[in-house]
Write a protein that binds this DNA or RNA. Structure first.
Lengths: 340, 340
DNA sequence: ACACAAATACAAAACGTTTTGCAAAGGACA
DNA sequence: TGTCCTTTGCAAAACGTTTTGTATTTGTGT
């Protein structure tokens, strides 16, 4: 087993001093080393399989090249996975690496975990809330480059990235309108969260923009899971002049709508069209026919967040910016023209 | 903004030397400091909000207190989330923190990412394969405490943890038998992976153990997603002496079985009972009635893996061990007695 | 009181880098 | 050939800890 190769081993092998090696490797200050020497050093380093010890360089530079990612809830949905992957991809491309902690709803635990991150001298942290709510940032994070993911602050003092909820809803409803529907129902969420309000106004916007009028009887509120969706859809579809299309708060709700349609003997999309939001592949792809839905950009939000942090690190003092990311339509088989 | 507080600030504030502070804080070597002095130092440290710089201590101790987690595929299912959470929880409890990288199927990228982890001097890595296959470990990992998660090596030279696939299948089928079923069908996966074989033998075991005979016409193979399950179940349930219960390779397959049953006008569980494997809440909870299924212990595997690594770090040379973790039955509403 | 042992605190070195201030070597011009 | 300037290489300090070897204090027994 080869003894550990550090910068001094490289220096010895190349017949130069460690200073020279350092300069050759970090070509920032590289007018101090002759081009061919630099090349030599690099070759030797590669030959020896040299890799810098980032504990040491981090200590010296006061920069760990580590980003923290604190998330409240990482399980139960694939969303967190996509977000982490986006963050990690972006970090990797810029030479950083991501430390993940998650604390559920235990905010004392969260505090301690943030402290761990700080002990490791993370250069910044993305603070992700899975349930897209207005959140206040833990005070411990003050002074550290931070961006909020899937949440916004009231004061706008810190950058944040969230899905464009109203745009998402408009996209979904537009798809229905484009297919020819004029009587469109919506099953919304009961919870008082940004998604609820955003998707409602998106729904109304789309209707208004196309000059369609909104029948309040076609707007119902349910708990945001499959069972809630089923019951709500049962209500909606049993009405005499039932809507010919349903815009559902989420894919899980949409799944309930499928069940209701099935129970009522209505075929999708021949008798009723359905569109959801989330693009939970595990559901949208599994339903029959496949569910047309609008994807939430978790991967992109993860990328955006770390890119923003790294920009801020490299160029401190950049003013905070609040971003909304677009939500693309994913077409499968659940929307068709309205029945004649 | 308070200037950064290091060990020397604490020392000055407490009126002692930095050595004393260090000894007081890491009570391992603590016969060298008087108990009350130790207490004093600790109080002062807490007052000042002192937190050690782990870059520095890691450098000195040759121990970073960081674990790497390399995963091939982190998105699309909630499994990875549960696994990460398990790993992170266990790590946190023992004072460690987890660095996550994921590389998809790009093995060259994986190599570079592992190199990043090593540059950060991770003390160990859990190498997770989401698709439970026999895997060989990247050679770069040699010499670093490592455990395989959801995969095993041929030579058994390195510790691993996987679900007890045959036990999982037995548990699922037992539930059916206990409810009184004697004609039980299985929809298995086509892919040549451990899960496929394990669940098949578990199925056969359970039948044999209860003296039930296995009707080959009640055993079908399908691609492991909803559509495959639907088609397979359609086959199975259209047979004249159709099985009264179906054991499905996965929850997604089971979802297909639901669709088939619905299409054939069979009620669940009155006309046919169904059980899956995975406990994908997003599906199992959403189906109607809820799907009885067997949970895959991803959270526990994550925990087990890091606990094993940390044991190995604290006590090097412990022989490798291959573990299978139990898979508990999660009862919902999809199994009942067979129709009269 | 004295010597000796035990208990406690301290200064300094080390971990692997980066970077600054200097010294040496090389080249050009007079 | 000598001086001066430019180019290139080196030694040493610093980042914030931990730990070893040693000095100092405190306490005990005679």
């Amino acid at each position: 087993m080869a003894t550990k190769v550090g910068i001094r081993e490289v220096a010895k092998a190349a017949g130069v001093s460690v200073t020279t090696v350092s300069h050759a490797l970090n070509d920032a200050t590289s007018f101090r080393v002759k081009a061919e020497t630099q090349q030599l050093v690099r070759d030797v380093a590669k030959d020896l399989g040299y890799a810098p010890n980032r504990l040491a360089s981090g200590l010296r530079n006061q920069r760990s090249q580590i980003l923290g990612l604190v998330s409240d809830e990482i399980t139960t949905t694939p969303f967190a996975g996509a977000m982490i992957r986006g963050a990690q991809d972006a970090a990797y491309q810029r030479g950083y690496v991501v430390m993940v902690v998650n604390s559920g709803l235990d905010s004392e635990l969260e505090t301690r975990e943030i402290s761990m991150l700080q002990q490791h001298q993370v250069d910044g942290v993305v603070y992700a809330r899975m349930y897209h709510q207005n959140a206040r940032l833990p005070t411990e994070l003050a002074g550290l480059p931070t961006v909020l993911l899937d949440a916004v602050t009231d004061d706008g003092a810190i950058s944040s990235v969230v899905p464009d909820e109203v745009g998402a809803a408009e996209t979904a409803v537009d798809a229905l309108i484009r297919a020819g529907h004029t009587r469109i129902g919506m099953i919304n969420n009961v919870d008082d969260i940004p998604a609820t309000h955003g998707r409602r106004t998106g729904f109304l916007n789309a209707l208004r923009r196309h000059g369609l009028e909104h029948d309040p009887r076609h707007f119902v509120i349910a708990t945001a899971h499959t069972q809630g969706g089923r019951e709500a859809a049962l209500d909606l579809l049993a009405q005499p002049d039932r809507p010919t299309a349903l815009f559902c708060f989420s894919d899980r709700v949409a799944m309930g709508a499928y069940q209701a349609a099935m129970a009522l003997g209505l075929r999708i999309p021949e008798d009723v069209s359905i569109v959801g939001i989330d693009n939970l592949e595990i559901i949208a792809d599994a339903l029959w026919p496949g569910l047309t839905t609008v994807a939430l950009p978790h991967y992109d939000m993860g990328r955006w967040a770390v890119d923003r942090i790294l920009d801020d690190i490299e160029n401190p003092g950049t003013p905070a910016v609040q971003t909304q990311l677009a939500c693309p339509l994913i077409e499968r088989g659940s929307v068709g023209p309205p029945p004649a």
